[in-house]
Every structure is written in C-alpha cells, then in structure tokens.
Design a protein around this nucleic acid. Structure first.
Lengths: 105, 105
DNA sequence: CAGATTGTTCCAAGAGAGTCGAACTCTTTG
DNA sequence: CAAAGAGTTCGACTCTCTTGGAACAATCTG
C-alpha cells in the first residue's frame, strides 16, 4: 500500500486537467485548498460512498495534484501547490478562484 | 448549421477543463494559439480524419474555448482569450505554456 | 450547372470512466 | 487479542467518450 506520487518532471498536463475536470473532484480539491482545515480522505467529499471517494482521490493523487501523508490510520491530504506552480504557473490558482454566482444584474 | 457559442456567464469550469484534458484537443488549441497563423477547421489537427476533428472542435467550441467565424466555405478559428481571462484569469496562459522537454540533467 | 472544397451529422464499434457494495488491509484502542 | 476506524481494492453495471467511415449540406470556381 505504498502511496505513489508522480515526480514533478513526470506531471502531465492533460492528466492534471482531466483530474480537475470532474465536478466531484473539483469540489474535493477546493475543500483541500481551504486553509485552516486539515483534510483527510474521509473529511472530503462526505456526500459520496467511500469507495467512490477513494477512487477520485486516487485520480487526483496520481495526476500529481494532491499529496497524501499517512498519519495514524488516516491520511492527511494537501495540495501540491508548489509543484504545480513550478510546472504550470497560475494554473492551480486560476482553478481555485471562487466561482461568481450568476446574478441577474 | 448555426454555430452556438456559450455566453461568458454560461461558461463552466469543469467543461473547459474537460475540453482541454484531451491531448488531441490540447494540440489543436496550441495550434490555434499560434500567432501569425490563421487557423481553420482543416488546418488544425491534420493528423486525424475530418469527422474526428470536427468532433473535437465541437467540444472546444461548446466549452467556450474557441470561436468559429464562417469565411467563405471555411471557418476561421480563434481562441476566446478575453472571455476565458475574464472568467478564470491565468488559466489559458498557464495551459498554453510551452512544455519543457524532460532532459536528463 | 458540375465539380471540388469545407465542414457537419449520423451511425456503430470499442474503449474508458463513474458509481457503489462487499471484502480486504492496516492501524489504533480497549 | 478483539473490535472499531480509515482507506484501498475488486468486480459488476452503466454511461459516456473517442474514433472513423459514409452520407449530407453549403459554398466557391470554372
């Protein structure tokens, strides 16, 4: 059960974009991005079954978007902000921008 | 055969990321992004059958990434840089950054 | 108008992705 | 050691996406 995180040089843009292109995963990423909030595998995406959540977390991890560090029997999730920033500057911040609600004026 | 381009307010981040997450479409976007080069539906992605190309261009257009203007019997393709920039600042430039080749040093 | 060019649409086949229950591993705790 | 908690993996189902040939629509040209 070794956690495999791709190296920075191995990151693939298409894979990163694909991982972020799913609404459920995008929501998870936004939760992890929330400061002053320690995310674990089960603290995010609590609206879905754990097998589904585990699947999405795997996609994010293998794309190089998240980092999972075991702590006790859980895993602390963080975003690989610096790695992503060094590879595609501005990409992650752009995606994390709060979406403006469509107002009628 | 009316070309439907979504309005800026209707742009969906997940849809945009999904459209960009395909290597073939990403290559097409990079070609269209090339300055001093007028792109048309058949000048891009010449390595694939035209029905496949048409499909990818439709995905990009409906996601709001490209704009197609009829000119004679062809269509001139442009990127909706300003629209995307106003919605997710920095996103498109980040994606268009030239990928560094993985060198062994 | 006939023919060539540009691009779309339709259809079918194959591959891929999302969902989720059930069984499993690993770790902490009593 | 037994039980509970956190995550993963497996398998099956469904749905979507990609691909590409063939037929079609629209436009320019001779």
């Amino acid at each position: 059960m070794d956690l495999q995180h791709p190296a920075v040089a191995e990151l693939d843009l298409a894979a990163v974009l694909f991982a972020l292109s799913d609404p459920a995963r995008l929501a998870i990423v936004r939760q992890i991005a929330t400061p002053a909030l320690v995310s674990t595998c089960q603290s995010v995406g609590m609206d879905m079954p754990k097998s589904t959540r585990s699947h999405h977390l795997k996609v994010l991890r293998e794309a190089g978007i998240t980092f999972a560090v075991p702590r006790g029997r859980e895993r602390v999730l963080t975003l690989r902000r610096d790695d992503l920033e060094s590879r595609w500057p501005g990409l992650l911040p752009a995606v994390l921008v709060e979406q403006p609600t469509v107002s009628s004026v």
